[in-house]
Design a binder for these strands. Structure first.
Lengths: 214, 214
DNA sequence: GAGAATTCTGACCAATTGGTCAACAGACGT
DNA sequence: ACGTCTGTTGACCAATTGGTCAGAATTCTC
């Protein structure tokens, strides 16, 4: 047997169908477990159980626990940056900001686990994401903060610190994913009702719109 | 030796000075470690190291890892409910809400670890706090939501869903504790400057004040 | 300062955990 | 039908982890 023909080296070879399907099963299971227990609290056995695989089989695809964690984070982190990137400097401040809120809210609704994974990673000191936070994310936020400042200078918005405004939008939207259990404890079955998300969206849009209005 | 004279039974006896001092050292260390790694991710050895004790010595005071976790949560959870309790139905809506925001922001500043501990506990499914969330917290929020609704009915506030307003305030204030590392990555040394917290406070107060204003 | 209670520790243990490996089972092109 | 490469697994291992225990050291009480 060719000694390079191992899980690590397989990247260079053409990916099999089985490979694709299994790697995705593992990443889904990893997201599930890491987003609940964090890197240290998660166990390979647990991930293997969720992925319905034996542990050695899982380790055939990802040789170390850390590899799964990195892969899960990498697979999702791009999605997380996009909404802010879409904030259009040419647009109308009010509608750009509501559009941004709505996109982030939508993301929290459809990928709550990814949101919690990021939350855990940040709380744990961002050992993996730190470079991205200080790099791409910082650059992106600086850029968009400048846009907001321009809008304010043009008198199209109330004078608000753009960084803290962005933090507020992040906090309020992600809260629906990260603290879902708390919200459920308080709202009970009302959370299942269809108007729930509509009310959340209307409240956020309303407060922020009036909040940033000139 | 009296067989009841153990760590567990000691509660019934008068507490020693050494006991008080060591138990507090352990709880501080537990807060430090649990708030970073969560229950599963934390190890007794780690907590013992932070508390500068040997592991068996630590286990002399708290016999199981879970006991430390429960004690840490219990010691801090009361503090967390208080700010909302202080929301005064007789007061002016605008000033009551800013006062609430300011108290929560102050709490996030002085006890960021406790905030992160709660965040982790909630993300992990609130195995310990669930009863409190569904009990006292829910009752309290229902009560204050009714107050806010009354204010709205009296035309003293914009018509906003009171529950989602409370969630927004929780989210934005706790964000400064839970996502401190992300904020630091973006703001850099600006975060050390004295005006940092003042700007955060001014931005939150401003957005919420205009946001809920009639 | 003797005696008793409390506090502390090294040595130890069983279970869990991350990870390896040799060998077996399937898939697939020829 | 064959050989080869891919995929799968039980058995295993060393390190870590939660927790115990007998006894040593210290503190407290009289």
């Amino acid at each position: 047997m060719n000694p390079t023909n191992t899980a690590r080296a397989r990247q260079t070879r053409k990916r099999t169908r089985i490979q694709e399907v299994n790697e995705e099963r593992i990443l889904d299971a990893g997201l599930e477990v890491f987003s609940t227990y964090g890197f240290r609290g998660a166990t390979i056995d647990q991930i293997a159980a969720v992925a319905k695989m034996t542990k050695p089989n899982l380790l055939y695809y990802f040789r170390r626990k850390e590899d799964i964690y990195l892969a899960v984070l990498n697979r999702t982190h791009e999605t997380w940056l996009q909404p802010l990137e879409h904030l259009n400097p040419e647009g109308d401040p009010a509608s750009e900001i509501t559009a941004y809120i709505d996109r982030k809210l939508e993301l929290a609704r459809e990928s709550p686990k990814a949101s919690r994974l990021f939350a855990m990673e940040i709380i744990q000191g961002a050992p993996v994401l730190r470079p991205i936070l200080e790099g791409r994310l910082k650059t992106l936020v600086d850029e968009k903060a400048a846009v907001i400042r321009r809008w304010i200078a043009e008198g199209r918005m109330a004078p608000i610190d753009p960084y803290h405004l962005i933090f507020m939008i992040w906090a309020t939207t992600q809260h629906y994913a990260d603290f879902e259990i708390q919200i459920r404890a308080i709202l009970g079955e009302r959370m299942e009702r269809p108007e729930y998300l509509e009310t959340a969206k209307r409240t956020l849009d309303g407060v922020f719109l009036r909040g940033v209005g000139k």
